[in-house]
Design a binder for these strands. Sequence first.
DNA 1: TATTGTTATACTCTATAACTATA
DNA 2: TATAGTTATAGAGTATAACAATA
Lengths: 169, 169
Amino acid sequence: MPHRRLLAPRKTRKAARSTGRPPAGNGDIRLGVLADFIGFHLLLAQNASFRAFARHSGQPDLKPGRFGALMVIHNNPGITQVALGRAISRDKSTITPLVQEFHRRGFIRRSPSPVDRRSITLTLTRAGEAALRELLAHARAHDRQLDAIAGKRKPALLVLLRKIADELG
Amino acid sequence: MPHRRLLAPRKTRKAARSTGRPPAGNGDIRLGVLADFIGFHLLLAQNASFRAFARHSGQPDLKPGRFGALMVIHNNPGITQVALGRAISRDKSTITPLVQEFHRRGFIRRSPSPVDRRSITLTLTRAGEAALRELLAHARAHDRQLDAIAGKRKPALLVLLRKIADELG
DNA sequence: TATTGTTATACTCTATAACTATA
DNA sequence: TATAGTTATAGAGTATAACAATA
């Protein structure tokens, strides 16, 4: 169902990040029919997973959306800004400050496209690759927690999640 | 937010995956090691579920966060603003404009608490219950799609998702 | 002193529209 | 005409801090 954030902000601000958890004390709240909705539990699980990752990633500087962008640049070196925007479903005007931040931090190289002088191609620098590797290490450690919870049901779980993403997307 | 969408919605993804295209011209993006992460698929599934719900809910007027709040008030009539905030993990300063909007639209009644003169208790009006019912109908229809995808594995899926939310939350 | 609700303010993320320089 | 990237601006959602009333 509801694809609404019932429990947690999808990203926490600096102050809230120190605790990393939503305020406690809602134990006596009744959820009603929501309790049987797959979508609702999907939401809760994803939020918990995200919070746990943010808590342990130790990269308070690298904001939520940045990870996916780094990943896409890594896997698609030479991608243009507009293509990056399409890949992560963001408008080009949203990409501009993002790549500016990456550039300021020395994570990417911006080179004029050899084939289209309007375009700028993006590639990760050594520092960018290193930052991504570190994030990936945290992501792997985090996913090992999830693996431990899923146990031998992991393949079945992945199949279901993939089906949901494919058939509903 | 939905959160970080790493993939464009399916319709905008290009099908052509065959010949020698430039490494990254458009939406044909390679995901790399993320592909085996539970957390990543959780994210995609939740985003897809969210988009599908938003697409079919046909309630442009009722903004995202509002549904969960209505639900909580329905299930906990007489709840105070601070308690509502805790239930949906929002600060009380975020709740104020939310309840003001509900009140303006005739969805809730605000009565002074009989036991604590600092508090205001919230209950849904007829109109509020009706609005919630309509949203619920959409939510149910949406979750039936998810049920169809999960099939007889639904109970096992819910168990896993609950475990993830509990142990990581 | 602590808590409830309100207000003032600020920050993040996002988009649209207008602009430029190319195509 | 159309597209790539930048800039200006706006809106939604959230939070912190300070306040008055009350506990």
